[in-house]
């Protein structure tokens, strides 16, 4: 089967982007009011102004700290609980309905409560992001630990493996694919947590920049802030992908090797 070359695909992508942007630029002020849709050129100008003044970096750094902090905190606790509950069947059985109940709650609904508890500083956003991330990572880790092949465990037990051997040689490595699925899913959610927190109560961060621009009816500023958020999400995703490839070399090979059945 012929696959189109990478360069060709990139050319097509660039063409697509350019045509969308040109159409937007053209429509602005002609098909729709510039007040509502702004225009790519204006957004670019605004964005570069923020880059020059460092505004975007200042607010971006705040949001990054919140999202990353929440991601690490929630991810860590999620993994620990996931492994623990995955191994302790009785506790898992007892807690199951409560966890599912809490899981189905949209976590951003906790934001007002968190404001009451933790104030409107950076820590409140970290906790909010962490809560969201926790559940994703926890559930994935838990599933991963549960999905460990019983045959592989039995084989190692016959070799005289202790619980510790099993944990480090089978359970964790086999759960790691699931853990990473949880982590990758969590990246956008960590950002959601941070930004929702900022939208609700804050005077710093990309979410604040967004809300502030909207408050001044500055559509251009809103779009520029959105672009900042998009760029950050892109880099966070890429970082997790990179980490994933490092942590699971056999996975990497899996996708690159020739398929055989």
């Amino acid at each position: 089967m012929e696959t189109p070359s990478r360069t060709y695909i990139w050319v097509l992508r660039a063409a697509f982007l350019v045509s969308v942007l040109s159409f937007w630029e053209f429509s602005s002020g002609r098909l729709a009011s510039e007040f509502f849709i702004s225009s790519p050129s204006a957004i670019a100008v605004q964005f570069s102004r923020w880059v020059m003044s460092g505004t975007i970096f200042y607010h971006g750094a705040i949001t990054l700290i919140e999202a990353l902090g929440g991601f690490l905190l929630g991810g860590m606790i999620g993994m620990i609980f996931g492994v623990w509950l995955g191994r302790a069947e009785l506790v898992a059985e007892v807690l199951d309905p409560f966890i599912m109940m809490f899981y189905s709650l949209p976590k951003v609904a906790l934001a007002p409560l968190f404001v009451l508890w933790f104030g409107i500083g950076i820590d409140m956003k970290i906790y909010l992001a962490a809560t969201i991330v926790f559940f994703l990572v926890f559930l994935n880790t838990y599933t991963g630990v549960r999905a460990v092949s019983r045959e592989q465990v039995a084989i190692l037990r016959l070799m005289g493996a202790t619980e510790k051997h099993l944990l480090f040689k089978v359970v964790l490595p086999s759960a790691i694919t699931w853990v990473f699925t949880g982590l990758r899913l969590s990246v956008p959610y960590a950002l959601i947590g941070a930004i929702v927190g900022e939208l609700i109560a804050s005077n710093r961060g990309l979410g604040y920049l967004l809300a502030n621009s909207a408050g001044q009816f500055d559509t251009t500023g809103v779009f520029a802030a959105l672009i900042g958020i998009m760029i950050m999400a892109f880099f966070l995703n890429a970082a997790v992908k990179l980490l994933e490839a490092k942590a699971m070399p056999w996975r990497d090979l899996n996708s690159k090797r020739e398929m055989s059945i």
Partner: peptide, 18 residues
Amino acid sequence: YNPAVGYMTQSDHLLPWR
């Protein structure tokens, strides 16, 4: 888990991450 025996099962059950 009879520890005195080594068992080579019908399917290999190698650990794919090693």
